[in-house]
Amino acid sequence: MTCRILVVEDEIFVATEIEHVIEEMGFIPVGIAAEQRSALALASQADVALVDLNLRDGATGINIGRILAQTHGVTVMFMTANPAQLGDGVPGTIGVLPKPVTDQDLRDAVNYIVARRRAADAAPPRRLRLFGQSDTFDMVQG
């Protein structure tokens, strides 16, 4: 089963690089959304979403992540240079990968969240801060 991934990011160069890495990994990018309206329009096509916090329409990323996860059943991981804005996390979402990220950081995190979505055992990558976890090195049951 191929995983469909939505990129919610307003910096077009960052977003296209993320899409490129996703495609190289064999996953299907369903689109780039730069604000809430387009993100929610693509929600039904996505299994996983990579969501930045500060977008074209302001700091809407937290709300987008919450809606994608809780209303549409999308597995959500935040990617932001401002991880402190997430506090203890957003219910229904996996965690946050602090920016900047290398292509390898991105691959590791995407592989982990896809494994979680598929209910497979997987160890979280070192840079991914999981919500509701005391230690990102804990093994997490999908």
Rank of each mutant, 00 (worst) to 15 (best):
Q36L: 11
L68Q: 08
L68N: 10
G31E: 08
L55T: 01
P98K: 15
L97V: 01
A46W: 08
A34T: 15
N111E: 15
V21M: 11
V48T: 04
E35W: 00
V48N: 13
V21G: 09
A39H: 02
A120R: 11
G89L: 02
I28L: 14
L40N: 10
N111C: 06
D52A: 13
E35R: 04
E17N: 14
A69N: 04
V110P: 12
A123P: 00
E17L: 13
I18N: 06
D88V: 05
V110C: 10
M25S: 04
T80F: 01
I113L: 12
G87Q: 13
V30Q: 11
K99Y: 02
V101T: 09
I18P: 00
P91I: 05
A115V: 04
D52H: 02
Q36H: 07
Y112H: 05
N82C: 06
Y112R: 01
L97K: 02
E35C: 04
N54D: 03
V51H: 08
Q85D: 13
D121F: 06
R129W: 03
L106A: 11
Q85T: 01
Q36E: 15
V74C: 13
R127Q: 06
Q85H: 06
G26S: 14
D57L: 08
E11V: 07
R126A: 14
Q45P: 00
S44K: 14
G65C: 09
R126Y: 04
D88S: 15
E9M: 03
K99S: 03
I22W: 09
F13N: 10
V114S: 07
V21W: 13
V96P: 07
I12W: 07
V51Q: 07
A39Q: 01
F78P: 06
M79C: 14
R37F: 06
V90M: 09
Q45Y: 13
L40C: 05
V114N: 11
A15K: 02
D47Q: 14
I67N: 09
A115T: 04
A122R: 05
G61S: 04
V7G: 07
A122K: 06
P100V: 06
R56T: 12
I113F: 12
G95L: 01
Q45W: 09
F13M: 14
G58H: 09
A41H: 11
R118K: 15
R37Y: 08
T93K: 02
P125Q: 07
M77L: 09
V30G: 09
G65V: 03
N82T: 05
A119T: 10
H20M: 12
Q70F: 00
F78M: 05
T80A: 11
V76Q: 03
E23D: 08
I64G: 12
V51K: 10
L106S: 05
K99N: 02
T60I: 02
G31A: 06
L53F: 02
R56P: 00
D10T: 02
T75S: 14
E9C: 01
L50Y: 13
G65P: 03
M79W: 13
I28C: 06
I62K: 14
L53P: 00
F78C: 06
I62E: 15
V48A: 12
